[in-house]
């Protein structure tokens, strides 16, 4: 049994809450402080906390490196795809108004910002986790002395 029982118990409680908070920051970014960048970093930090406490191999089983690789690209594609979609609808690149041109309460802008922020979330989360995986995989396991 690992000696860090308190750390394990507390972080097990905190990790879902951190992930939930990231989603709140993501979807509440239109109304309060926050957005894709912050949410992505917070979401990544919940995964990194998991890796720090339970080990990198466990974290890689929960969030496989292939997801990370795909997620990084997917985010950029979602963002760029939103721009291409507005092109197809007859507007300029990233002119979200064309998603709902008749709307009186700027629904097109809201949809566009939602899609774009989702892309940001994808890329930022994956890139942060990727950098952590890359560095963490090279570092030797933490000894008790380092704690």
């Amino acid at each position: 049994m690992s000696p860090h029982v308190i750390l394990r118990v507390v972080s097990k409680l905190l990790i879902p809450l951190i992930a939930l908070f990231a989603l709140y920051v993501q979807f509440h970014g239109d109304f309060g402080p926050g957005g894709g960048f912050q949410a992505g970093v917070i979401f990544a930090s919940s995964i990194i906390l998991y890796a720090l406490i339970f080990g990198l191999d466990e974290a890689k089983r929960a969030v496989p490196p292939s997801w990370v690789r795909i997620g990084m690209t997917l985010g950029v594609l979602i963002y760029g795809g939103t721009g291409v979609a507005t092109w197809m609808l007859g507007g300029e690149f990233l002119n979200y108004t064309y998603f709902a041109p008749q709307s009186t309460h700027a629904a097109g802008q809201h949809w566009g910002i939602f899609a774009v922020e989702l892309g940001v979330l994808c890329t930022v989360t994956s890139a942060m986790v990727a950098i952590f995986y890359a560095f963490g995989s090279r570092a030797p396991e933490l000894t008790d002395e380092d704690w």
Binding site: G29, D30, F31, G32, P33, G35, T97, H105, A106, Q109, H110, I113, E117
Partner: peptide, 10 residues
């Protein structure tokens, strides 16, 4: 035009 409370996000 955008009708969002958070200008930073807009």
């Amino acid at each position: 035009n955008i009708i969002l409370p958070n200008v930073v996000t807009a």
